[in-house]
Design a protein around this nucleic acid. Structure first.
Lengths: 341, 341
DNA sequence: CTGAAAGCGCTTACAG
DNA sequence: CTGAAAGCGCTTACAG
């Protein structure tokens, strides 16, 4: 380690013939310090290019002003946006962010959480991975007295602060819209049902069909059509059915919806007249396909901000044990060419 | 702070009637410890749900195993991918990442860097903001004895480790391709020239024209057409020229190229026959527009991995002062419909 | 208003 | 193989 010797409060103290206590008080504006001394300390600190050692400070103070974030994938649009939103708020408050990605693997997620606990972060913000099979590691966070906020993909049973999208309502509105446009044979591409978000979207789908008295056709519900490729594959199968769907709700993602669109184009099936398509997430590309794709905007940056604000709001009531609380953000159906007959 | 008292090595020591020294040695597998004692310590540690306090450990050890990353925007595809790449490698090495975004603002960038210095990160990885006007803060990093790696947008003069794309060559190849396709009136949408990447792309553009003996038309070079809107605006102006371009190289980004394409479509100008379009970055959407857009892939995830690997490789030669070194990644021209006559 | 002292939780040379 | 002690760089009650 070619680490150079760094200047500490002792260096400043020595130079000014005072003690470290005084320097510390001057630098942190904590406790009484003679104004003249204070100015002198401040001046000397910049002269010597002093940088407070946050490590030592944190260790002493028992808090790190750091929030740990665990997401399945950093470079997935939705999560990147949530992180940006969190950063926006936490930065203003002088907090740092430690970011980890679980790569959708439960084991890696557990390791990430452990690391964050070891780092003594003040709060852990998490959206669980797709193959999560238990939540002991999250319980552990709570047991360690670290704040825990879940967002988007949450473990329902765990009583924590949560920020979610109203997925059920969004799906309900999407399907209602399809029905109003005259579609009747509506297929659902669903995601892993161990994730709350996909369960909820399915519920919204079923609720809408029920409301409009449209029978559920099990052949129309395709499991795990998450990617573009899987969406395309599912579409090919669906379109081969004796009674083929006249609309497909890719509840997993816009990528999946894109797969649907590409297959439709390949087969010269006209969208939206012969086949309606609705995606989920409002990825940038949905606006520029032809036709453009109807989708659902999740307000991801706002979601991140809500997460961060929740932390700061709940922290104010510092001593009190945290009351579980869920903030639900209402997504918005963005109606575009792919469903407008 | 409802922080609970956490279990420390002293708690374990007390329970086992040994000292903290022994516990520490057992936990870190450092120095001699009786195998039986060691197992006992390990067992007790898990029983008590002990988590090492990384803060204290780092303070004592003088390193944090943490890398700070500063990017203009976390939720920009390119940067999100680079971060994911960095994370992939650093995670394997047990390193943490602290992420900051400068929001393209020099002042915020300076603050981010200061925070990271205070955090005593072992290394700072940065891609500078668009309005950077000096690099004192980066010099400061070096002065503090912290490793500095620049990537993509770098301060050329600063002698540090760098990972860059060969922007000039990429632009050169893109323009050469356009010329080979028969385009002769090639316009350039350029980005802020204080950023090296945009200077280099311009150089590549000029070099290609020169090679093929095509005179430079100053009216064809449009400053600062960075976004979709600005790209569109620039295109409208360019197409109104007495001698209008027959191809546009949106060297700033694919978003800009998308703006070009949309204007062309609006004006019923045929792409690629009447107008060729080339973007930069290989954003996902470029593959699915119609026509699809020729662009340049930067291998962003690989770039992130290269950054991280560079850190670990140079660290091995620990004591030696770091020799400035630049790794150049060769981007790849992705030829698509928008330039294939 | 300032100083002396203890302590945050760890690690590690030094004895034994 | 284990313990006693010092120290990483701060902060803060307690005296004065």
């Amino acid at each position: 380690m070619n680490r150079k010797k760094r200047v500490t409060i002792y260096d400043i103290a020595q130079k000014l013939n005072v003690t470290a206590s005084t320097v510390s008080r001057a630098l942190s504006s904590n406790g009484y310090v003679n104004e003249a001394t204070k100015q002198l300390v401040l001046k000397t600190a910049t002269e010597l290019n002093y940088k407070r050692n946050t490590l030592a400070s944190n260790l002493r103070m028992g808090q790190t002003k750091t929030i740990g974030v665990v997401v399945p994938r950093i470079n997935q649009n939705f999560f990147a946006n949530v992180i940006a939103g969190i950063e926006d708020i936490t930065y203003q408050r002088g907090y740092n962010l430690i970011i980890c990605q679980s790569d959708e693997q439960h084991d890696k997620e557990v390791k990430c959480v452990t690391t964050l606990i070891n780092q003594r972060v003040d709060c852990i913000v998490i959206s669980v991975s797709a193959d999560s099979y238990n939540y002991d590691h999250l319980q552990n966070v709570i047991d360690q007295g670290i704040q825990l906020i879940q967002f988007d993909r949450v473990a329902d049973d765990l009583e924590t602060l949560k920020v979610i999208n109203d997925n059920e309502q969004a799906a309900f509105e999407a399907i209602s819209h399809l029905i109003e446009q005259g579609y009747r044979q509506i297929a659902l591409l669903e995601g892993p049902q161990n994730l709350n978000i996909f369960r909820q979207r399915k519920t919204g789908y079923l609720r809408a069909l029920q409301k409009f008295n449209i029978p559920v056709n099990k052949a129309f519900i395709v499991e795990n059509a998450w990617t573009k490729e899987l969406g395309a594959e599912a579409t090919r199968k669906l379109l081969r059915l004796a009674v083929a769907p006249d609309a497909i709700f890719a509840s997993t993602s816009d990528f999946s919806a894109l797969g649907v669109l590409e297959v439709a184009n390949d087969l010269h099936i006209k969208v939206p007249s012969q086949l309606g398509i609705c995606g989920y997430s409002n990825e940038a590309f949905t606006a520029i396909t032809s036709p453009s794709i109807t989708t659902i905007d999740q307000f991801s940056v706002d979601m991140g901000k809500a997460v961060a604000n929740l932390y700061f709001d709940e922290l104010e009531q510092t001593m009190a044990s945290v009351v579980p609380k869920t903030i639900s953000i209402k997504p918005e159906l963005i109606i575009r060419g792919s469903t407008l007959k």
